[in-house]
Nucleic acid binder design. Structure first.
Lengths: 147, 147
DNA sequence: ATAATTAAAGACAAAGTTATCTTTAATTAT
DNA sequence: ATAATTAAAGATAACTTTGTCTTTAATTAT
């Protein structure tokens, strides 16, 4: 559904939300290892989420690393998608038409519209914090490694 | 949601279903123009749908071109997706985890599962014929061109 | 101040997707 | 048979995504 970059962004953000605090920042190495992603690529991706502490926060130097503010934890998943430029996926129609609309619907429009709305609402209502809590509570997992 | 190749495959198949018959085959040029796709690339894509008349049929030479059998018109949209190798999209989890399952669900699993099931069932029940008929009946459109 | 540590920034490489162009093969009409 | 027409097949190019590596900048500790 999303690009690898966005998948890594989602996993990284959830991991950071679960494990970090201002006094316990996480290195890019720890994050990448935990979410099973390439270190340098993940570093690049997190740079899309840090400017202006948009989603996560970073500080350089010793004792530095990544963390997320309590405020940002309350952001919906959609905030990550927007930062990753994935919002068009939730606009596009199944057939990739430029002009698919209520007035000129593609033949999948009416059914897909409803499903897409559920997706949007899932990403709009689910917060980063909720996802992290599910993992903390042991009812969800972030294990990616094959085997 | 799908690759450009798959979008073109879907549009082309629907167009062929709507306009062609065994006695009125369509050239790749007409198809590509109608669905607003690059001619040669579309030709390549249709080669994925023709072997064994899997989804559409093709004959070479004068009076040749593409058409679809009445039998194939009854195929579900999913047949196109399978031919295009897109089936993994409907398996993958939102976070791209290799091991997301009922036993070890990712934190989006339970909600996404339901939405994904609706998508699968849409692609499973909707037939090529139904899509073509919606266009024929004027209640749906295949217009892609910007403007 | 200096050294050490960490993310940011930038250049680059590998792989995948999208797209084009040329040649070949099949079919039809003459 | 020959020429004309059409899709199939193959080579290649452009672009995007994914990934790596090196250098720079910020921060901390000594």
């Amino acid at each position: 559904m999303f690009s690898k970059a966005t998948e890594y962004a989602l996993r990284a953000t959830i991991y950071i939300a679960q494990k970090s605090s201002v006094d316990n920042k996480l290195s890019i190495h720890e994050i990448a290892k935990a979410i099973d992603s390439p270190v340098s690529f993940t570093a690049k991706i997190l740079q899309l989420l840090t400017p202006g502490n948009k989603v996560i926060s970073a500080v350089r130097g010793p004792k530095g690393g990544f963390y997320i503010t309590e405020q940002s934890k309350k952001l919906p998943v959609r905030a990550i998608l927007i930062a990753m430029g994935e919002s068009k996926i939730l606009d596009k129609c199944v057939l990739g038409l430029n002009k698919c609309s209520e007035a000129k619907p593609c033949p999948m429009h009416s059914q897909y519209k409803n499903i897409k709305q559920q997706l949007i609402s899932l990403f709009e209502t689910k917060t980063i914090q909720q996802l992290a809590e599910d993992i903390d509570g042991g009812i969800a997992f972030l294990n990616s490694k094959k085997g």
